[in-house]
Design a protein around this nucleic acid. Structure first.
Length: 281
DNA sequence: CGATTTTGACCCGCGC
DNA sequence: GCGCGGGTCAAAATCG
């Protein structure tokens, strides 16, 4: 089966090469996005979607379409996406749930163990990859408000980038959604946010009296006065994941929409930074 | 005082 | 086997 996204091409390269411009892919006006969740925007405007999961064989889901993709994560129980993974994600998730239960039972025992052993167990869990997607946002602030509460648990310098990468975890104890935030080294005005996992709880923002409905998936709920809005929104298939920068396949599903044609300027200066990362080899 | 951030250390995977 | 880079932990510091 042919690889639709050769590793020599960035996802932007691929997309432009395939006759669909980024401006067609990504089109959100400030006005439209000001009060809608990110995924809601996608739902509303029916643009495109792609998601993580390291698909070995794209033919297993040749007919992905954005509505299918976007509807899939609406609830934590929905597993249609992961069930399509050929990477064992589904099974791993089941195991993860079991592991969590075991972890509670063994909590006392674990306290007796050395911290090293504890770390080994925890780091093993990170092998189980969650659904992940990332997007770029042109913003002056690093940590974009998305309706959920996050706690920063780490920060690392990124190779070949003057900007550090920040790691956040959802503050809800039952929710293990994580996100990474970093600035593009090529264009410091661009913030790259990667979500991993799905929220298992409603957004705290829903508690606000005038707040818009919370996104049912990690996404954006932008306020006009917060930042310059997401001029760019890329849902990608974990393109920034994985140390070592091994090529991960991207899966875009784009649909033509009149709305997509309305905005041409916002993406003109988007930087194909994943390509830049690959060039380091 | 609880929640969050900072930051150095540690672990793991991967390439050489 | 070793080194590098990414990801996470956890204690200390800071914030509200």
């Amino acid at each position: 089966m042919e690889d639709p996204f050769p590793s020599s091409l960035s996802f932007l390269d691929h997309y432009t090469a395939s006759g669909c411009t980024l401006a067609e892919m990504l089109d959100y006006s400030d006005e439209k996005s000001s009060s809608l969740g990110f995924m809601e925007l996608l739902n509303t405007q029916d643009h495109f979607a792609a998601f993580e999961e390291e698909v070995e064989d794209p033919s297993i889901h040749p007919n992905w379409n954005s509505s299918e993709v976007l509807n899939a994560p609406q609830t934590p129980n929905c597993s249609s996406i992961s069930s399509e993974s050929s990477d064992g994600v589904k099974d791993e998730r089941v195991n993860e749930e079991e592991d969590e239960e075991d972890e509670e039972e063994d909590d006392n025992d674990q306290k007796k163990k050395t911290s090293k052993q504890l770390k080994v167990k925890k780091t093993n869990q990170k092998k189980k990859r969650e659904q992940r997607f990332a997007f770029m946002t042109k913003s002056e602030v690093d940590h974009l408000e998305d309706g959920y509460r996050w706690r920063k648990y780490g920060q690392k310098a990124v190779k070949n980038s003057p900007f550090p990468r920040s790691y956040y975890r959802c503050t809800n104890a039952t929710c293990n959604v994580k996100k990474r935030v970093e600035r593009s080294c090529a264009d410091p005005s661009i913030v790259v946010t990667t979500y991993e996992g799905q929220h298992t709880h409603p957004s705290p923002q829903s508690l606000r009296p005038h707040a818009p409905p919370p996104p049912s998936y990690p996404g954006f709920s932008l306020n006009n006065n917060q930042h310059q809005l997401m001029n760019y929104s890329l849902l990608v298939n974990g393109y920034m994941g994985g140390g070592g920068g091994g090529p991960q396949q991207l899966s875009f599903c784009s649909q033509s929409s009149p709305a997509l044609m309305a905005n041409n300027g916002l993406l003109q200066d988007i930087v194909p930074w994943p390509a830049a990362k690959r060039e380091e080899h």
